[in-house]
Amino acid sequence: MELLVASAIGILTAAAVYLILRRRSFAVVLGMTMLSYAINLFLFSTGRLVRGAPPVLSDGAPAYTDPLPQALVLTAIVIGFGMTAVVVMMALGAFVEGGDDRIDMPSRDAGGAGE
């Protein structure tokens, strides 16, 4: 089971990184979504994998899994959504303003930025 989860994390990460290295904003947004899956799974897995022991107290439950990574991941999921939404909005704005959805700086703007 551990091997399955670890390989899933690895595959998700690889796909995410590949997409993030594309040049169009939509691919990058999808890549970031995938990356947050991978990272959430990773954070969750630091609590070690346990079956059938949710951290909800009940009489007679022999053990509970580590609740702390779960709490961390829960907030990370929600914040990840907020971040995705902001990035999507920026991508949309850039597309409408600039006419295309490339994420690279046009060569005329690169270098000598600022004053």
């Binding site: 551990e2 091997l3 989860v5 670890a6 390989s7 899933a8 994390i9 690895g10 595959i11 998700l12 990460t13 690889a14 796909a15 995410a16 990184v17 590949y18 290295l21 991978a38 799974l41 990773f42 897995s45 630091t46 070690r48 994998l49």
Partner: peptide, 25 residues
Amino acid sequence: LHGLVAVAAGGAFGALAYVIMRTGP
């Protein structure tokens, strides 16, 4: 090249997760 970087990142991250899951705190 991008694929190579991606596979390296994925492999490393997956391996890290595996090691953590197999070892105690």
